[in-house]
Amino acid sequence: MTTQTVNSDTTFSNLHVAIDAEKNVPLAATPVAAHYPITELSVSIAFLLIVVLVGIAVTYQPIWIIPETGRYWMVRILSAVSTLWVLFSIYGYYAAKKVGFCVREQDITLFKGLIFRKQITQPICRIQHIEVQRGPVDRKVGLANLHVFSAGDVTQTFVIPGLLDGDAVAMRANILAHKELQHHG
């Protein structure tokens, strides 16, 4: 055990020599658009309202009368689901506040998570392609999502959500420019 620790230590002392501290700026998160968390929360609550309204309408509509026990359970299930949904949305709101990114010369990093925090770093030279996506609500409030794809991510995609429209487009252009440089240089 002791020899192993020593072993790993010598390996990593190499490492610090190899990395030029001057050239390697530490990662720091820039928050995404200030109105992204509230947008997320509103969308989530609006969706819940629609579901609840439809649920109530179905329960009490006069065409197909639902028996009393049916109504009893419908109402209970709806309220339980809504409570959970609201709790998750509130968690989501605070989690959305923690979403940030960091664009360095050589890589892009996404920061996310309130309790379970993650830092996902994508080297630009490994990017296969990028996409700017806007949902209907995003377009209304001027937000955009930047999707970054590298080889092999079938299940997990790298998405920076809640960027200001202009920022997302600029980031995309910036990254594309970087790749062009690589191939001509």
Binding site: G113, I115, F116, R117, K118, Q119, I120, T121, Q122, P123, R126, S150, A151, G152, D153, Q156, F158
Partner: peptide, 23 residues
């Protein structure tokens, strides 16, 4: 390597631990 994920929950931070995912 294509991408690296460094993850650390609040509890892990207290214990100075972290997980790495290498894609």
């Amino acid at each position: 390597v294509q991408r690296v994920t460094f993850s650390q929950s609040v509890f892990m931070e207290k214990a100075q631990l972290a997980s790495l995912k290498i894609q």
